[in-house]
Design a binder for these strands. Structure first.
Lengths: 217, 217
DNA sequence: GTCTATAGGTGGATAGAC
DNA sequence: GTCTATCCACCTATAGAC
């Protein structure tokens, strides 16, 4: 993949990423992509085998970024709390900086069994997920996290907040009073911070008793 | 809407609900719906004006159920904790009992600006959301809930768990080791219970200090 | 109410000139 | 590398028989 050799190629990729994420795969036409990219739609078939291949290339590109920054957080974190906060924060940054990413991911999550089932997204995400589970388990063993929550479920709950906020962005915008365009950037950032607080509040062991051994299942 | 006058009508509605939620609106064809419903595809145009109208009718039907059971929870709840637990639990039951509902909702959330933007979903959901915010605020005032969380954000975080679990069902299935078909029913039920615990753990005021007045923003 | 047949339109993909 | 022109399959929607 040369840096900028084929300018049209990236133009097509960017245009397609935008259209696929806002309209969905089936609803997006080859001609729309061509127009949005400023090239003839037939050119698409010079760079990509077909519509589906183009789509999968976009998913692949996105996933690489996602997992890279995800694993980095865990490598650098010094404590369980730091890891949890770091992951939530990175999630938030990524969703905010790449506005089309959340929807594309959302569609993949929903569409999994359907046509272009890219198992990659789940498989790779599983890596980050497994590490989050470990971190939570460690926190429970060392006593800083409450141990009456299933670590895997707690991981899902923790991750869900930021992802949901961005997937449901239009709806969230409406319930918060900003309209269907979604909340402004500063509110989004504030929520990202909140999500980390909420997660830590849920995970942290109650400071009173300190001794609870009931383990789920 | 007579009880069971037009048998074919409901057959079409059910078939369409299934197909739209699994494949999406654009990817689903009129002929598929006809076949799935066991009637000729042209019959669809006898009962519904066009494809979009049929789709919107399905959304409407689903939303009615959703908001009805949502508001009932708040009417019956005797305490803040009971209301939060009740809502999470009702969310879970509904998602479990109507297996196609979560995806349909997910698609609507993501698609909002796109073609069939049904503002209904957000508007009606806003009613339930507003009441959840009130409940959390009440809990904060009475001291049983920690008051350093923004009630609106806390409401979003609380709701997000169950919705995300069901939207991302295939991915969740994979990371939990059950494959892309999703986790079995008992695991789903266990998660629903967990989600309530997680939310209460996050919301409940730390039993130690009991006196914190820092308010977000 | 339910079907057959088909009109009318659009979308993905290819051939081939430049 | 990029474009024009076009083929073919398929999809929505309608007309009209039963």
């Amino acid at each position: 993949m040369p840096p900028d050799d084929a300018h049209s190629r990236t133009a097509i990729l960017d245009a397609a990423e935008k259209l696929f994420s806002t309209q969905g795969y089936a609803a997006t036409t080859i001609k729309q992509i061509g127009t949005e990219a400023g090239v003839n739609s037939a050119l698409l078939y010079y760079y990509f085998a077909d519509k589906l291949t183009l789509y999968q290339e976009i998913i692949r590109r996105l996933l690489e970024t996602l997992t890279r920054s995800g694993t980095r957080v865990f490598d650098e974190a010094k404590s369980a709390e730091e890891a949890v906060r770091g992951l939530v924060s990175v999630q938030g940054e990524l969703m905010t900086s790449r506005p089309y990413a959340p929807r594309l991911i959302a569609r993949e999550l929903v569409d999994h069994e359907a046509e272009h089932a890219s198992e990659h997204i789940s498989k790779l995400a599983a890596g980050v997920f497994a590490r989050l589970c470990e971190v939570i388990r460690d926190g429970q063993r060392s006593g800083i996290f409450r141990d009456d929550l299933d670590p895997r479920f707690a991981a899902i709950s923790t991750i869900s907040q930021v992802v949901y906020f961005h997937i449901a962005r239009p709806a969230v915008g409406i319930v918060l009073g900003y309209g269907p365009a979604g909340p402004p950037a500063d509110v989004t950032r504030t929520f990202n911070a909140h999500a980390a607080d909420y997660a830590i509040a849920a995970l942290t062991a109650p400071s009173s008793g300190r001794k609870r051994t009931r383990k789920q299942k």
